[in-house]
Simulated assay, not measured.
Amino acid sequence: MNHIVLLLFSLGVCAVHCAGSHTLQYHIALVATPTPGVPQSTITAYLDGLEYGRYDSNTRRARFLTPSLSSLTEHLEMQTKYAQGFEVIQKHKMEFLMGYLNKTNDKREFHVYQRKFACELHEDGTVSGYEEIAYDGKEVMMFDKVRVVYVPATQEVLTMTQQWNRHYDHAKINKIYMENECIQHMKLYLPYISVYLERKVQPKVKISSSESDGERILHCWAYGFYPRDVEVKWIKNGRDEIYSEEATQILPNPDGTYQIRVSVEVTPEEGATYSCHVDHSSLEKTLVVPFEFNNISTFYIVIAVVAALFLVPVSLGIFVCRKRRAKGSGRSQKIICLATESQESSTKCLK
């Protein structure tokens, strides 16, 4: 009864916190072979990119990772029971895929079943969602919400997907959950974790460079920022954006923040400037971090100076050696002098 009252209350106040679009995601992962230190199955829950809950087969308990949700004890108990039953069903589905794809349960092999399930609440009040299923990191099928069936990701698994639809008649149930209970859970959580979702953490930026096949590669690493959306780009001469051929991904950090690295290849030009520009909602203005090349002409001047400083003592040594050879007397006096006059020859003085 308390849970029902709490749910109704949350749905009533959600209008204050539910402005804009929101996404609730469940990431499910199962490994075929038990591995020390790795739960055989995990369910991780995200709301607008914030990891707020987790269940694993080691504890067989669901838990909130956001302290503000700790008061939802009855709801958490319900989620635990649901996750325990859900885990059993997913194991059957993993075995189905393994059997069809001719994967063995050999302890020497490591196979992973993954499923991503999400519901979305849009700003205009409409709802949608998606579901994807992968095996060993390769997507095999996805949920068609309009036709209410699973469809193959490739033609190779067409027959398997048809058998999946016949064997597991869960498409309609999943659609109902996606459009109803999943959205209700989202609205329940939003008032409690809005303070986390609305927080803003400024990005830290580090820049570096490396060389590959004669080309200079500039790296810009922005990290520790929240929320997730960010724009990072390299600019030449303060106005020209440099295209990056490397696929850039925004990756999560364990503390709930995010990171991204953008790299570009450039050919250093005399007088050209390069800078990394970062745009984020936590910043009042674009953060610009300049990159300074070691000036090529200065580099050669330094080399020339170093070479000159090296040749002075060498020349002096040769001069002293010759003077002593001219003035020295007696067989008992021996002076050994080794001096390199050039890269091709050396002078050896012995008396």
Rank of each mutant, 00 (worst) to 15 (best):
H3Y: 09
I4Q: 13
L6G: 11
L6A: 13
L11F: 09
C14P: 00
H17T: 15
H22Q: 09
L24A: 11
V38D: 00
Y46P: 00
D48C: 04
R54H: 11
T59D: 11
L65I: 07
L72I: 05
Q90N: 15
H92D: 14
F96E: 05
M98G: 10
Y100T: 04
Y100E: 09
T104A: 11
F110C: 06
V112S: 02
F117R: 10
A118S: 15
C119T: 13
H122P: 00
D124V: 05
D124A: 07
S128Q: 08
G129T: 04
A134R: 09
A134W: 06
D136G: 08
V140M: 13
D144C: 06
V146L: 10
R147Y: 02
V149P: 00
Y150C: 07
Y150A: 04
E156M: 13
L158N: 14
T159M: 14
Q162R: 14
Q162K: 15
H167Q: 15
D169P: 01
D169G: 05
A171P: 07
N174F: 13
K175L: 15
M178A: 15
E181S: 13
I183A: 07
Y189V: 03
Y189C: 07
R199N: 13
R199C: 13
K200V: 11
K206S: 12
I207C: 05
S209E: 13
S209C: 08
E211W: 07
G214C: 05
E215Y: 12
L218A: 05
A222G: 03
G224E: 02
R228W: 01
W234C: 03
R239V: 08
I242H: 00
Y243C: 01
I250R: 02
L251T: 14
P254K: 10
D255A: 04
G256Y: 02
G256N: 03
Y258L: 00
V262T: 09
V262F: 00
E269T: 07
Y274K: 03
E284I: 05
K285W: 03
K285F: 06
V288L: 03
V289R: 11
N294Y: 09
N294I: 08
S297Y: 11
T298E: 10
F299C: 02
V302P: 00
I303Y: 06
A307P: 00
I318H: 01
F319C: 07
R324Q: 13
R324F: 12
R324K: 12
A326N: 10
S332F: 14
S332E: 14
A339Y: 04
S342R: 09
K348F: 15
C349S: 11
C349Y: 13
